[in-house]
Design a protein around this nucleic acid. Structure first.
Lengths: 243, 243
DNA sequence: CGGGCTCTTGACCTGATTCAACATTTGTGG
DNA sequence: CCACAAATGTTGAATCAGGTCAAGAGCCCG
């Protein structure tokens, strides 16, 4: 139904029924489309005057670097996600953003966003909802790193990614295309790359999933959900504002 | 200057110069004050129709529970902080809130908040700024758990708490009153209580700080900052909107 | 066809956990 | 105001999850 529109429209649409006028406003935000190549940071820590973007195609990650060179990936963004909403509010970016693949994103000025919001308040709520969902994911990520072991954590992470991708039509319960390397996974999960490799092997040997050649294949969805204590509801609340 | 007002006014006031009208609106939010006793959860996971609160006195923590009984504290809230802003947006709370001390908080209906925001847009921005700061803290927390060892992580956490408390006038660089037990620290830092105890001993033996009898005394501020790689700027950006 | 990336595996090491015992403080009712 | 129970803090010893180091294999792309 929303498939002819942007991934963002599709994502928001699954929580708030958007009418044609609202969809038009959303599409209007996708002017000034930019393309970025993989590996070259899009935003970096301490940078001032950074813009916000809506990701249209490709994957990026936001991360922080410690002085000893280790890094922690805070989150991955996939099509339909906002980039750097917070950096606009703080005048200076507190994290880096790296394109994992070639990326297409629409630059959005804060003024445009505000205009769109006043034109269509339902849109504002939907975006606020999306931002809250992102925050909830960061919290879940924190819980995972703090209290889950490597196996559960990895399973949980991949299930979450799968759920997010389903929302924008880029995954099924059978799996998804995944451009991440094991190093990305390690940096996100707070593990070493070597250990991630071992964990992936274990998941494979248990017949739960495979992570190979840019493909995640989910072999035993229920088994994974049980292992990870994954809350199937947590990403698809039935919308905050049916009213 | 703002000291006769609520801790919230004081906190926001250090980022946006609020005029008397704005302060009055803020104060107006503090109707329906409630008192909660320590230990009995104020909000719990899965609860629907939970209110938002502004914390006026005392400390609370928000946490998530895993099935095996371990818990992860996501954040502590101190006077001037909002509680459960996200639970209002999601119809159901995704975390628990436990009062650590006896707590005084003002219940705020979403409608009141929205009214206040339309009356005073600068206030809305200030609150949005505060929410972003909270999110930035969760991110920093994530980085700490993912990539810092127990000693650095503990030091960083206590420095952050100190910085936050200074904003509401409840700490100096010499230290602060702290109602947390070592168990609280453990649950927040993703460590065992036993190890927290050893880490605190090490901090004491290194002459950096003491954590005793509800008091944190900072003995060597610069040493701690160096150990924790604490970014002195990160909580006191000079305001997002001087305009 | 050679040089990076990425992945894989083994051997060894270490930071943190667990378990267990005991000390100290705080709170509570008599 | 004391006595006792519960909560909190302290310490040592054994164990383990995950990290580090090292080396090699596969593979993608210019």
């Amino acid at each position: 139904m929303y498939s002819k529109h942007s991934p963002l429209a599709r994502k928001l649409g699954s929580f708030v029924a958007l009418d044609d006028a609202e969809l038009a406003v959303l599409d209007g935000l996708h002017q000034r489309r930019r393309r970025f190549v993989a590996g070259r940071d899009l935003v970096h820590q301490g940078q001032t005057r950074s813009a916000a973007y809506i990701l249209a195609e490709g994957w990026v990650c936001s991360y922080k670097l410690l002085r000893d060179g280790t890094r922690q990936i805070v989150d991955f963004q996939i099509p339909g996600d906002f980039l750097g909403l917070r950096s606009v509010l703080f005048r200076t970016a507190d994290h880096n953003i790296e394109p994992i693949t070639t990326v297409e994103a629409s630059e959005v000025k804060d003024s445009e966003l505000l205009t769109a919001f006043t034109q269509t308040p339902r849109l504002a709520t939907a975006v606020l909802w999306a931002a809250s969902r992102d925050e909830a994911m960061v919290v879940e990520h924190l819980v995972g790193i703090g209290r889950r072991n490597a196996l559960e954590r990895t399973a949980h992470f991949l299930l979450e990614l799968n759920a997010r991708l389903m929302l924008v039509g880029q995954a099924t319960t059978a799996g998804f295309d995944c451009p991440l390397t094991q190093y990305h996974l390690a940096d996100a999960l707070g593990l070493s790359a070597v250990h991630v490799n071992r964990v992936l092997r274990e998941l494979r040997e248990k017949g739960l999933l495979t992570f190979q050649k840019g493909q995640v294949e989910i072999l035993d969805f229920k088994g994974l959900v049980a292992l990870a204590e994954f809350d199937l509801g947590y990403l698809d609340h039935e919308g905050p504002l049916l009213r």
